[in-house]
């Protein structure tokens, strides 16, 4: 036995050192793996929410408001979720690097893998609508998140730019509608030369996005009326317990 091996074994004996348990390492690697998977799945949920935001957007209304598709995309983009996707991908990459073989992939390979995985999860969550209860729960539990959604919807109350969005509160026999926009102002909607017909008949309580022009301070001449597809509904305000719609006395 060499001098060093003697010294080492003496120290091991004296300090009663024993190898860490195999289960300790199994637990550590499992925790790391779970953290990576969770991170990718959270990224996937964020992607599903982004896809849902984009598919539910009334792009025609947005185009009318901004005048260009690029500006519409910049206006609509759910930046909070895009940042969240970036963070989750970065976190997954950082954690993966700490796995036993994590260093074998180059940075771009690592990023591509987590992006692809996040999109696979994101697509699956979108198709299975797994993101919906999560986003609803966020709106319910985080008032600032709900406020953010309300503010995004309120952007489309811009009669000076030819767009308003709101809830139908009355439809008379001449199919003239009365709506309350998302900023809680009442409008009488007259139908002008309509560009398209709605597949579903309009009814009270339905939310709509309208393109047209104001004829006076409370009349709006519509050339297109379409259902408002976003999850956000002022009707939810009461449900979300954020702010209640004031009593309407028209």
């Amino acid at each position: 036995m060499t001098k060093l091996s003697t010294k080492i074994l003496e120290k091991i004996r004296k300090e009663k050192m024993i190898p860490k348990s195999r289960y300790y390492f199994i637990l550590m690697h499992t925790l790391l793996g779970t953290a990576i998977l969770s991170s990718v799945m959270i990224g996937g949920i964020a992607i599903a929410i982004v896809i849902r935001h984009l598919t539910l957007t009334d792009w025609e209304l947005a185009h009318q408001f901004t005048g260009s598709h690029i500006r519409s995309a910049l206006l609509i983009a759910p930046y909070i979720w895009l940042i969240f996707i970036g963070i989750s991908i970065l976190l997954a990459d950082t954690l993966y690097k700490h796995t036993k073989k994590g260093y074998r992939l180059k940075l771009w390979q690592l990023i591509m893998t987590s992006v692809i995985l996040s999109f696979v999860f994101g697509g699956t969550f979108y198709v299975t609508k797994a993101d919906k209860p999560i986003e609803f729960s966020l709106s319910k539990k985080i008032p600032s998140y709900a406020e953010w959604k309300i503010k995004k919807a309120q952007i489309f109350v811009a009669p000076e730019k030819g767009v308003i969005a709101g809830e139908i509160i009355a439809i008379d026999e001449d199919e003239k509608m009365t709506i309350v926009d998302f900023k809680e102002k009442k409008w009488i909607i007259e139908k002008g030369e309509m560009r398209s017909r709605n597949e579903k008949p309009f009814e009270v309580g339905m939310q709509v996005g309208i393109i047209g022009e104001t004829t006076n301070h409370e009349h709006f001449k519509a050339i297109r009326i379409a259902p408002w597809k976003q999850d956000f509904r002022p009707g939810n305000w009461q449900q979300l317990n954020i702010r209640k719609i004031p009593e309407r006395n028209f």
Partner: peptide, 19 residues
């Protein structure tokens, strides 16, 4: 060297024969 060998001993169960 001594510290390295002690670390090797303590972590022997983490040695992966793939490496």
């Amino acid at each position: 060297l001594q510290e390295s060998f002690i670390k090797i001993y303590i972590n022997l169960n983490d040695y992966d024969s793939d490496f």
